[in-house]
Design a protein around this nucleic acid. Structure first.
Lengths: 143, 143
DNA sequence: TTGACAAATGCAACTAAGTTGCGTTAGTAT
DNA sequence: ATACTAACGCAACTTAGTTGCATTTGTCAA
């Protein structure tokens, strides 16, 4: 369900009303490659004169996560980021200087093997993992 | 430099004075297995009647990270955690319910291979990575 | 052992991200 | 067209972290 219509179908399935803010937020994620935080969203929607309330955005992201449309992403600062859950699972390369984020794909077989192993040994039910690489992007190396 | 004395030697090397707070903070990390955040430290030091100021603790952790005694750790909430850098590199199993943290060791060869690969392909200089697994611990599964 | 000097501290005031309660608005099913 | 309730918007709040500046305190050299 990577695309607009599929996501809206999921919303209907969950009996979520098609509100202005909800629509705008979903569109933003569909159009955007990079993870978005609430401040990012507020800024973006303000630029295109769509008045949105921050409480509403916080609640919206929570709902979209609850029904599996969005996935939480941590990028090492103190903001909560989200991404479309429908995208192929991937990890991130985060620039410590400018906060630029690049997606990277990797073979996760090893990670899944680890999850099974620790799940057994520590009696944890593992629900998700987060793997990010931090460093300096090309531009920031020059500076 | 896992132990008290070795750490204090490093502090002396960097010409850092042996102050009350500094000593208390280092002792806390030496005694503690789990990652600690500023609120954790303030709470712990208050319990043992050591009056500490939060600004001082923030600045102390920054210094200890700068000289390589502590390493930053992200556990998926909006707090910055730290651990002794001297411990064997490892990752974490974090309970989403009670915040319990367990350390796990894994063979990192695969991660390092990935780092080299992306470093070349995306022209990023990779400085560190963070890999945490999130789920439910044994106790919280029962509840 | 005592000054002097820089390092470190403590306070108050601030910022940014996120949360809560509650009265109001507006999608949607009938 | 109406009614029901999901969703909204506001204000007030909390928590993590930051900044500037005046004061205190380790430490080194005399």
């Amino acid at each position: 369900m990577k695309y607009r219509e599929e996501i809206f179908a999921v919303l209907r399935f969950h009996k979520l009303r098609l509100t202005k803010t909800r629509q705008a937020v979903v569109e933003l994620f569909v159009r955007n490659e990079t993870p978005l935080s609430v401040p990012d969203i507020l800024l973006a929607l303000h630029k295109r004169q769509a008045g949105v309330n921050k409480t509403t955005v916080y609640r919206e992201l929570e709902r979209l996560q609850a029904i599996g449309v969005l996935e939480p992403v941590q990028l090492g600062d103190r903001k909560q980021y989200y991404e479309l859950a429908s995208r192929k699972h991937h990890h991130h390369l985060v620039c410590l200087q400018c906060e630029r984020v690049e997606d990277i794909d990797m073979d996760e077989a090893v990670l899944f093997a680890e999850e099974r192993k620790w799940s057994r040994e520590k009696h944890f039910i593992i629900l998700r993992h987060s793997l990010e690489f931090f460093g300096l992007c090309r531009q920031c190396q020059a500076a």
